[in-house]
């Protein structure tokens, strides 16, 4: 079989990723203490999305896979967002 160049993520990188994720968790908890009224959910979702992005990129190794994988992930998320949007086109306009 054809040998592919293997990318080994260093332990140090993974440790930094973990620290960043823990930091973001801390921020998202503290953010709820501040009253941002309507923005609370938006902020929580935004931080969660940043965390998800980091997990996908480093832990799930997307950064080092062929671009096909990234295209697929993007496509799936795009379709899912559209599904939510079209469903809300019913609920938000009733």
């Amino acid at each position: 079989m054809h040998p592919e160049t293997v990318h080994i993520t260093p332990y140090r990188t993974l440790a930094w990723v973990l620290i960043t994720l823990l930091g973001l968790t801390f921020i998202t908890i503290t953010a709820t203490w501040i009253d941002l009224s309507a923005l609370t959910v938006a902020v929580a979702l935004l931080i969660a999305t940043v965390k998800a992005y980091i997990v996908l990129t480093y832990f799930m190794h997307l950064k080092f896979e062929s671009s096909l994988f990234r295209v697929f992930v993007f496509m799936v998320l795009f379709i899912y967002v559209l599904v939510i949007a079209f469903t809300l086109s019913d609920y938000l306009f009733r």
Partner: peptide, 16 residues
């Protein structure tokens, strides 16, 4: 949340 994040990091490290 913390527990799960740590567990995820250790899985990733075990691959390395």
């Amino acid at each position: 949340t913390v527990v799960l994040l740590v567990s995820s990091a250790t899985v990733a490290m075990s691959i390395s």
